[in-house]
Simulated assay, not measured.
Amino acid sequence: MAHTDQSIDTLVSISGTLASIGLALVAILVSKASIDHVEMIADDLFLFSSLGFLFVVVLGYLAQKQQGTSRSARLLIAAEWTFSASLATIVIGAIAMVYSTV
């Protein structure tokens, strides 16, 4: 995939939104009166994925600032891998939440 300014902007925008959603889920779980073991694991997964998405925002910003250099390309690749890992983590957390309600 060719990296463009638009792809970097999209990655940063989506990561910011998903970080906010993950932090909201953490806040909802923490506010519950009782939380079981599976919900605690899901809470941690949502927190780690949010941190990963925030890291993607930072990497995307740095990649934009160094546009056109080889370092920019490496930062963007790191941002894409971090985004993928964070997305997988939030999906695993969602599966754990569904499992805890069943």
Rank of each mutant, 00 (worst) to 15 (best):
S100C: 09
V12N: 01
A42I: 05
E80M: 02
G16C: 06
I90P: 00
V91F: 13
V30N: 06
W81E: 11
S31A: 15
L45M: 12
A94V: 11
A78T: 07
S84C: 10
I41N: 07
V12G: 01
I77N: 10
D44K: 01
R71M: 09
V38R: 08
I14Q: 08
D5L: 14
I35H: 03
D9R: 10
A94E: 07
Q6F: 12
Q66V: 08
L76M: 05
F53Y: 15
R71D: 06
A63D: 09
D43T: 14
G22S: 06
L45G: 02
S7E: 13
L87D: 12
S49E: 05
L11A: 10
S72K: 01
L18C: 01
L29Y: 03
Q6C: 04
L54H: 14
S70T: 13
L23Y: 09
V30P: 00
I35G: 01
H3Q: 13
Q66R: 11
V91Q: 05
Q66D: 14
E39R: 01
I21W: 02
L54T: 14
A63H: 02
I41S: 09
V26T: 13
M1N: 09
V98N: 07
S72D: 01
L59G: 06
Q67C: 03
S7H: 02
I90T: 15
V57R: 07
V38T: 15
S31C: 02
D44C: 02
I28D: 12
R71P: 00
V38A: 11
I92R: 03
I92D: 06
D9Y: 07
L29F: 09
Q67Y: 13
G60T: 11
A88K: 01
V98R: 01
L18G: 00
W81I: 11
V12T: 12
H37K: 14
A27R: 09
V57N: 08
S13F: 06
F48G: 01
S72W: 03
T101P: 00
M40V: 03
I28P: 00
L54D: 14
E80K: 04
F55D: 13
G68W: 10
I8Y: 07
D9H: 09
S13P: 03
I21Q: 04
M97A: 05
T4C: 12
M40Q: 13
Y99I: 14
A2F: 07
L76Q: 07
F46K: 00
L54M: 15
D5A: 14
V12Q: 05
V38I: 14
E39L: 06
S50Q: 06
V102D: 11
M97R: 05
I28G: 01
S49Y: 05
S86A: 15
A24N: 11
D44S: 08
F48M: 08
I41Y: 04
A19P: 08
G52D: 10
S50E: 08
T69G: 04
